[in-house]
Amino acid sequence: MPRNGEEDGETVAPLPRVPSGTSTRLRARPDPFLVVCRCFSLLTCLAAILCIAVNVLSAVRSFKNESDIFDGIFRCYAVFIACFVVLAETEWGFVFKFWQLLQYWAGRGMLQIFVAVMTRAFPDYTGEQKDLILLQNISCFLLLACGVVYLVSGVLCIGLLKRARQQKEITREQAVKDLEELEQRREELEQLLIAERV
């Protein structure tokens, strides 16, 4: 029976072995810049959700008080637009298909600033709802800060850099997947080769 690596007097070169830790090593290092962008996106999303909650509470209070009905309608618009801020932060392709401006950080920042201003509008100067006013101020200034950061970053083309790095990460993940498939195929071919030798 021929030895391993020999068949009918001919030497069969063993298939090159890809290091088993290669795919693990490629996946173990996420891009720190993209991690920071995802964390900031999560913070912006939470600030927008907080604005939605504040505007809903303010709208309910306004509709109960008949003299503030216009404030209630204004709050409903603020809730509707804040939902777009949350959707833009998910970076869902469907949203960008119809509202391409939200794909760019400067446009996204302007929308966030607009929602923050709408949330801050018509404060309760009588001081009856101190908790609601405090929550309104926190959500407003937090979203305003996120909007300013997005606007400045968009002007500095950091959003373009993020998209380029995301594309690179997708390409790397595809390369790792292809490498794993090649490794699996190599193992299958080795098993067939061993079975033929036996």
Rank of each mutant, 00 (worst) to 15 (best):
M1R: 08
M1G: 04
P2I: 05
P2L: 05
G5L: 12
E7K: 12
D8S: 12
G9M: 02
T11M: 09
P14Y: 03
P14H: 01
P16L: 15
V18T: 15
P19H: 11
G21V: 02
G21K: 02
G21L: 05
T22F: 15
S23Y: 05
T24S: 05
R27A: 14
R27Y: 10
P30Y: 10
L34I: 07
C37Y: 15
R38G: 09
C39S: 12
C39L: 14
C39Q: 12
L42R: 06
L43F: 13
C45N: 08
L46W: 03
A47Q: 04
I49C: 15
C51I: 03
A53I: 13
V54L: 05
S58F: 03
A59D: 04
V60P: 00
V60E: 05
R61Q: 10
S62M: 03
F63H: 04
F63L: 04
E66V: 05
E66T: 06
G72C: 08
R75W: 02
C76H: 01
F80D: 06
F80A: 12
F80V: 12
F84N: 10
E89F: 07
F94G: 08
F96K: 08
K97C: 10
F98Q: 13
F98N: 13
W99S: 14
Q100R: 12
L101D: 11
Q103Y: 12
Q103C: 11
G107A: 12
L111G: 05
L111W: 04
A116E: 03
M118H: 03
T119I: 04
R120C: 12
A121H: 06
F122V: 06
D124F: 04
Q129G: 04
L132E: 04
I133T: 09
L134V: 14
L134C: 07
N137S: 08
F141N: 06
F141W: 13
F141M: 06
L144N: 00
A145I: 10
C146M: 14
G147Q: 02
V148D: 00
V149M: 09
V149D: 02
Y150A: 13
V152Q: 03
V152R: 08
S153E: 08
G154A: 05
C157L: 13
G159P: 08
L160M: 03
A164I: 11
A164V: 12
Q167F: 00
Q167L: 03
Q174C: 01
Q174T: 02
K177T: 12
K177R: 13
D178V: 03
L179V: 06
E180N: 09
E181G: 02
L182W: 01
E183N: 11
E187L: 08
E188C: 07
L189Q: 09
E190C: 11
Q191M: 07
L192Y: 05
